[in-house]
């Protein structure tokens, strides 16, 4: 790990906040393709951590490893002090309840309406809710992403951006304590994109969530970031705040920010 690339090493060891997720020396390959190589990072309590990196740099693979949809080859992932790989199926289910996962593809259930899509995790995770409360929560969540009028539509009747938002609504409806957003604003117009960024911030403040946000959208990163990490070749290449990223002279980071920078 190139420590000289860490703009501000003091960020890495913020003593005040406790760590929610700690990843150590994570490696994952698919056949000959090595996607993650000795990746280490931490997610602290109540922060928004932005993950940047080129397409194919393993960002989605990383967050899938966190919820154990993929099994890493080596290294450890600790969630609230417990090693994710050692959990038995009940503990794993318990952990997954605490994590909200927004899939890059949306992953809405095609055979269900939007309402049923949101109810599906809600009634299974929060079993004590009454019918009335379930309806209220579903409607509130859809209101937040501006999709209340599409509540009875099928996913196939929605546009790509609407599907993404519906999927975001499904993720936040269960109020998880940790959110993993995989490109929440991709494919959205700037106005909606800003609304989503605001929503992410609102969720963070209201429920005190900690989030990992994968994005290529620098505007979204500006609006939500507490800390950023850039991945390159399966490793954490650089870490810092948004100001530090914007001022750095590192070529890769610079080109990343310049290409989307408004004059």
């Amino acid at each position: 790990m190139k420590t000289d690339n860490r703009i501000s090493p003091e960020h890495a060891s913020r003593p005040a906040a406790s760590t929610v997720i700690e990843i150590n020396e994570l490696c994952k390959s698919f056949g000959k393709l090595q996607v993650l190589r000795n990746l280490s990072l931490q997610l602290f309590e109540n922060e928004n951590l932005i993950l940047l990196g080129k397409s194919g740099s393993g960002k989605s693979v990383l967050i899938k490893c966190i919820v154990r949809l993929l099994i890493p080859d080596s290294g450890s992932i600790t969630f609230l002090g417990k090693n994710v790989m050692d959990l038995n199926s009940e503990e794993l289910a318990e952990m997954r309840v605490k994590i909200g996962f927004l899939f890059q593809s949306g992953a809405l259930y095609d055979s269900m309406t939007i309402r049923e899509n949101l109810e599906f995790p809600l009634v299974r995770i929060k079993k004590h809710l009454t019918r009335q409360e379930v309806n209220e929560k579903v409607e509130e969540s859809l209101e937040n992403v501006g999709l209340l009028d599409s509540i009875n539509k099928m996913p196939s009747q929605l546009s790509g951006g609407m599907r993404k938002r519906a999927s975001l609504a499904r993720t936040i409806v269960v109020d998880p304590m940790v959110m993993l957003y995989d490109e929440p604003t991709t494919g959205l117009d700037p106005v909606t994109s800003n609304e989503i960024s605001e929503l992410i911030n609102r969720v963070q403040h209201k429920y005190k969530t900690s989030s990992i946000i994968i994005t290529h959208d620098i505007e979204c990163a500006r609006a939500t970031a507490d800390r950023l990490i850039m991945l390159k070749e399966g490793q954490a290449y650089m870490e810092g705040s948004i100001e530090e990223f914007e001022q750095t002279s590192d070529e890769l980071v610079e080109s990343y920010f310049k290409s989307q920078n408004k004059p």
Binding site: V67, L69, R96, F101, F103, A107, V174
Partner: peptide
């Protein structure tokens, strides 16, 4: 198969079903 490919099965798994 299409649920698998479009990650719907994964989505089900992470929502503890």
């Amino acid at each position: 198969g299409s649920m698998k490919v479009s990650e719907q099965i994964d989505a089900m798994e992470v929502s503890s079903t």
